[in-house]
Every structure is written in C-alpha cells, then in structure tokens.
C-alpha cells in the first residue's frame, strides 16, 4: 500500500532543503503552507482545549456565571480592531500583566535569586573543613559576571578588572552553549536525514 503521508512529507522536506541553494518559489510555497497550517492547528487546539473546555462548557453547560468575567475581558481584546474603542483592550492586558507581575515577584526572589545565591555560597567550605577550589571559582564567576552587567558605575580600575574577568567566564559559558547548540542542530538534521534516507527513499535500513 502506498504511504501517502511519507510521500507528502518527503516532497515537502526536499522543498525546504532547496533553500540551501537559495531562496526559491518551492521553498516559499512550503513556508507559506507551514505558516497557514500551524496557525490553523493552534487555533483549533486553543479553541477546543481552552475556550470550549474552560469557558463555554462550564459557562453554558454548568451555568458558572462567574466565567462571564473572563468572557467579557476576552471579548474586549477584539476592540483592538476598532480604532475608536481600542483603549478597552488595555483592561484584559492589565489583568494579565498585573497577575504575571504579582506571581513573579516572590518566585523570582526565592527561586532565581536567594536559592542561587545560597547555592553559590554554601559549598565554599567542604565537609572536611577545607576550602573548595571549584566552589571558589563559581563564587568568583558569579560575582564577576554580575559586575560585568552592572552599568551604574563606569567599568574602570578595580571594577573594570573584575568586569573584564567576568568576560572570560561569559565566554566559557557561551562557548559551552555553542557546543551544545551545535549538538542540538545536528540532531535535528540527523533526524531529517534519517527520514529522507530510510523512510522516504528506502536507501538505508
């Protein structure tokens, strides 16, 4: 039996790869189809799993009238398309931004700041009572990186030297991240190559 799914996927895969030579109509068409399909997919999933499951079913099915509030707020978002009333869309945005900011403060203090500072300082002295060299490297790295991003004072003299040291730590981090990013991108390529060679062209097993 002909596997139409693989044939379609194979043709589209090759169409995208033609971009490696240069931009061309085949690639543009594949790209346009992708944009349309992916937006359509998101629309369907969001409609079904959020608006139907969280709003319409409980509101109209179970008569949870409190849900009229997010319904009205949500509908106000559409006022963006009416220039005269577009200011109304700021109200639902205010709800989202306010809520986001409110929950972020304690979490950012606790999870991102305090916990990370404590993890930097705590291992400085090992269980044997001796200073831990690696932990010292981490402490110096954290402080110098923070100073590198501290722009309220000019990076001159002692501050400048520490900020300069921070650059080296940052470069090690960026290098490591680049290495892992190469791994990631190559993995994606390998996956597509496996599809072309094995599933589509049957050249390998």
């Amino acid at each position: 039996m002909i596997d139409w799914g693989t044939i379609v996927a194979g043709i589209l895969t090759l169409a995208v790869l033609t971009f490696l030579y240069r931009d061309n109509p085949l690639y543009k068409m594949a790209e346009s189809i992708l944009i349309g399909i992916s937006i359509g997919y998101t629309l369907v999933i969001v409609w079904q799993t959020t608006l139907v499951d969280l709003l319409f079913d409980p509101l109209f099915g179970d008569s949870r009238l409190s849900l009229l509030i997010p319904l009205i707020l949500g509908l106000l978002m559409f006022s963006r398309f009416l220039s005269k009333y577009s200011f109304l869309s700021k109200i639902p945005i205010a709800v989202m931004i306010g809520s986001g900011a409110g929950v972020a403060i304690p979490v950012m203090i606790e999870a991102r700041t305090m916990k990370q500072i404590s993890a930097t300082v705590a291992p400085l002295v090992s269980s044997s009572g001796m200073p831990d060299i690696s932990a010292l490297v981490v402490l110096v790295g954290v402080i110098s990186t923070l100073i590198y991003f501290y722009f309220s004072r000019e990076h001159k003299g002692f501050i400048g030297r520490i900020a300069n040291l921070g650059t080296y730590f940052l470069m090690i981090f960026f290098g490591a991240t680049f290495g892992y990013t190469v791994m990631s991108r190559m993995s994606t390529l390998i996956g597509r190559m496996e599809f072309i060679l094995t599933d589509f062209l049957h050249l390998t097993q």
Partner: peptide, 11 residues
C-alpha cells in the same frame, strides 16, 4: 565556570 556565568545572568 560556565555555570557560574549563567548563574550570574540568572540572578
């Protein structure tokens, strides 16, 4: 060292 730089950014 790499983690320290990332931690600095994170803080």
């Amino acid at each position: 060292p790499a983690m320290a730089a990332r931690r600095g950014i994170l803080i």
